[in-house]
Design a protein around this nucleic acid. Sequence first.
DNA 1: GCATCACCTAGAGG
DNA 2: ACCTCTAGGTGAT
Length: 328
Amino acid sequence: MIPAPETFNLDHTLGCGQVFRWRKTGKWWYGVVEDKVIRITKENGSLHFYSQPEKIDSHFIKRYFRFDDDLQGIISQISKDELIKDAVRKVRGLRIVRQEPWECLISYICATNANIPRIKIMIENISRKFGEKIRFDREEFYTFPKVQELSRTKINELKCCNLGYRSKYVLDTARNISNGKIDLSELQKLDYNTCKKFLLTKLKGKKLLPGVGQKVADCILLFSMEKTEAFPIDVWIVKAITDFYQSLFNFSFIEKLKKQTGRKAITITDYDTICSTMQKYFGKYAGYAQEYLFHYIRTKCQLNGKKTRDKCIYAGYWKLDLEALSGI
DNA sequence: GCATCACCTAGAGG
DNA sequence: ACCTCTAGGTGAT
C-alpha cells in the first residue's frame, strides 16, 4: 500500500470510460492489466492493491495511473473557462491511465458505434476466447490476447465475440501488426502529428489499421502513446463546441456544425479545425481537458435523467460566460 | 474535398 | 408485443 496523491479518484479514473477492463464490486476495483489481475481500493488516502499471478509494486501503480503527471499543475493550465473549471470541480481526481498500445488500439476500433457497456462486453469476449485464464479471489479473469493470437483467428470467431462489422477491422489490424507492417512501440517515439499520420497510413489505398479514423487515432495517442495533447472529438465534444465554445470559431462554422447534429459524423477537415483550435486553447494537456469535459457532460446528462444527447440541452444550465473565453 | 449510406446489435423509448 | 432509434465513427462510393 502506498499513499495516493490528493488529486486521485479511482471511481472517476476507472469509471470514466477510458479503460474497459475494470469493474467495481464493493469497495474493490478489479481489473486486468497486461498479464495480471489487479484488485485495488483507496482508503484513508492510501492505495491498497493485490495482484495475480505476479505481484505488482508501487512503481507499477505510479506508472499506470500516471502519478508522474502533476495533476494540480495540469488543472491550472487547462482551467481556461467556467465550463472546464466546473468539470474539474465535479470530476476531481480523474487521471489519464497509461494503457498498453495494442489492447488500446483494438479496444477503440471496437468502440465505434457502440456504447461503453457494449465495448466492455466485446473486449471481455475477446479475452475470454483468446486470452489466458487467471484465477483470483475464486473468480476467473482473462488476459487480453497477444497480437499473434488474434492475427491467427478467423473472422467468424470474432463475430462470435459480438464484434459485428468490426471483426474484419480487428483481424486485418492484427495481421498488419503481426507481420510487421506497422510497429506500435516505434510509433510511440514519434511526435503527435507524425504518430497520428502513421496510425492513419494507407498502403495501396488500404488502411494499415482499418477501423482507425481520426477519433480512434486520437484515443490511442492519448491513452497509450504519451500524447497528452491529443484531443479526441466525438459527438459529445462536438456538442460542447456548439453549445459552449462557439466564440473560438467562426459563426458560420458553428452554424454548419449545428445543422449536422443528429447526423453521424463530422468531416475530416472540420475535425482538424476543431482539434487544432482546442489544442491551442488548452495547451499541452488538452487531452486531460477532453476527458474532464467528456465525463462531466455524460454524467450530467445521466443525472438529468435524459438518455440521449439531443434531449440533453444545456439551455439554462450552462452559464454561457463567453466573456471568459475571449482571452484567447 | 464533400455528402450519403451501410454497418453489428443490445437495449431504451415510443 | 412490435417498431424505431441510438451508441466514444469509419469505409466505400
